[in-house]
Amino acid sequence: MIPLRPPRASRVQVAEPTDAELLERCRRRDGEAWNLLVTRYERLVYSVARRNGLSEEDAADVTQGTFVALLDALGRLRDEERLASWLMTVTRRQAWRVRNLSRRDVQLEQAPDIVDDSSEDWAAVLALHDGLAELGGTCRSLLEALYLDPESPSYAEIAARFGRSIGGIGPLRGRCLEKLRAILTEDEAW
């Protein structure tokens, strides 16, 4: 289940820091900023590792390796608005290495399922997650809960988690998708 924010009534309305702001704070040794980055991207990185055919144990190692790489690259990262795709690319590269090493030691029938997206599909997924990162805030959380949560929670469950009425979820989802479409269309990724 994808963790969501607490209901609106108990939420302080403050602007979410952007990825660029969090990276800048990390460069200044702000541990809270690092925790926010981990919260924002740990599911994405872990899911890319799993999607590339790794076991839970190997996916955990690769996820950790990706976040170590992020720490190492803090001073060099330039295009910070594209952190999602940077993390996904590093993870996929590491997963390939781990997968190819482990395949030497396992029987073919024991090898985990491997899903190789075409480069076009992969580019679309990268663009989608960069777009979600730019969208941010409630919209990002809502769209992730509606469309990316493998447990497919119902509107009623999502409404309860967001502290909204069930009838309000559909229109909000429509507005959030429209914003995401504008972001992705502007980037000419889709």
Partner: peptide, 11 residues
């Protein structure tokens, strides 16, 4: 595209 990468919660 969303179906291609559902977000799993890590341990």
């Amino acid at each position: 595209d969303a179906r291609r990468l559902p977000l799993e919660t890590p341990p």
